[in-house]
């Protein structure tokens, strides 16, 4: 019982928007499709929805091929980035739109609409015009509308990107709880990794039309496969093999990632462990310190972040420290 994408391809002229994507989605699973803008993730979602026809490859749901099925017969719910609410219908009519197509009884429609508006926290707003809603409310209506006909798969295309920061944070958590509580599999497209990792347990990272890595959020976050992935996921310390010649314990064959979150800063006097480190730059991000540390013995510089308690006092430029780097902090990357 699964949604299966097999070698999907979609080209626009010379642009390979989706360039051979194979992916499987299990029942009740939420998958985040994460990637920078222009990586083809929205196109991939549109292929799954049936809004675009693939140039090659196929798509099957629970064993039957649906590649040629038009969107209206797939029963895939979609939440659009710009909501796409029908301006000529009120909130209730918007949510009931798919139920009308399924020829539901009036009373059943009304009940289902009420149930969904309750679910998304808009109970009682059936008669409201959609133009009178705030962006966040419109987003909730779009979600309720997509969920109402009990879709096989729920597709969400950057659903929070048009909202302001505060609202996005709040809705992100809410959506995460909602999706994990509902018996629906979902594909959540986003360029924002915090959204991806909050909402989905499994994450597929996309780059230039291909999947760069697919795995649980821990796998992807802690063990990015390539230098590009490490950079994209916010790791700052990626080194080429040539830079690491003087570093004991570092992988020697290819590029490597140094996970600064696994390192420990020690006072200079502490002779016990680690290597010499000199503070080259000090900045703050809220309560967190952001330091640039030069390691003269190893011939490299790295970015380090942490709170007060992880430091032997307030850091200053030029300050001498020592840095303890356990072996597991080094991770070898694929040379790509």
């Amino acid at each position: 019982m699964s949604l299966h994408l097999h070698e999907l391809r979609k080209h626009y002229g010379a642009t390979r928007a989706v360039d051979g994507v194979t992916l499987e989605l299990d029942e009740r699973e939420t998958l985040a499709l994460l990637g920078p803008s222009g990586c083809g993730k929205s196109t991939l979602l549109r292929l799954v929805a049936g809004l675009e026809a693939p140039d090659a490859g196929h798509l099957s749901l629970d064993g039957s091929d649906i590649t040629q099925l038009p969107p209206q017969r797939r029963r895939f719910g979609m939440v659009f980035q710009d909501y796409a609410l029908f301006p000529h219908l009120d909130v209730g009519q918007n949510v009931a739109f798919g139920l009308v197509e399924l020829r539901w009884e009036r009373a059943a429609q009304r009940e289902r609409v009420g149930e969904l508006l309750e679910l998304v926290g808009l109970a009682g707003l059936e008669r409201r015009r959609v133009q009178q809603l705030s962006g966040g409310q419109q987003q909730r209506v779009a979600l309720a509308r997509a969920l109402a006909p009990r879709p096989e798969v729920l597709l969400l295309d950057e659903p929070l990107s048009n909202l302001d920061q505060t609202l996005r944070e709040a809705l992100k958590d809410e959506l995460s709880g909602l999706l994990s509580s509902l018996p629906v599999r979902a594909v959540y497209v986003t360029h924002d990794q915090s959204e991806a990792f909050t909402i989905a347990r499994r994450v597929a990272v996309m780059k230039s039309g291909r999947l760069a890595q697919v795995g649980t959020r821990e796998e992807v976050l802690e063990h990015p496969r390539t230098g590009w992935l490490a950079h994209f996921l916010g790791h700052r310390n990626v080194f080429e093999a040539a830079d690491l010649a003087r570093v004991p314990g570092a992988p020697q064959r290819g590029p490597a990632l140094l996970r600064s979150d696994l390192t420990r800063v020690l006072p200079a006097a502490d002779g016990g462990g680690g290597t010499d480190a000199v503070v080259r730059g000090v900045a703050r991000d809220g309560l967190r310190w952001k330091l640039r540390l030069a390691l003269p013995d190893w011939g490299i510089e790295l970015a380090w972040e942490g709170y007060d308690r992880e430091l032997p006092g307030a850091p200053t430029e030029g300050q001498q420290l020592r840095l303890h780097v356990p072996a597991e902090a080094w991770q070898e990357l694929d040379g790509a």
Partner: peptide, 13 residues
């Protein structure tokens, strides 16, 4: 066009 896409995902041909 976008609203028609939305309609099609909701089952309207």
């Amino acid at each position: 066009p976008r609203l028609l896409e939305a309609a099609s995902t909701l089952g309207a041909g």
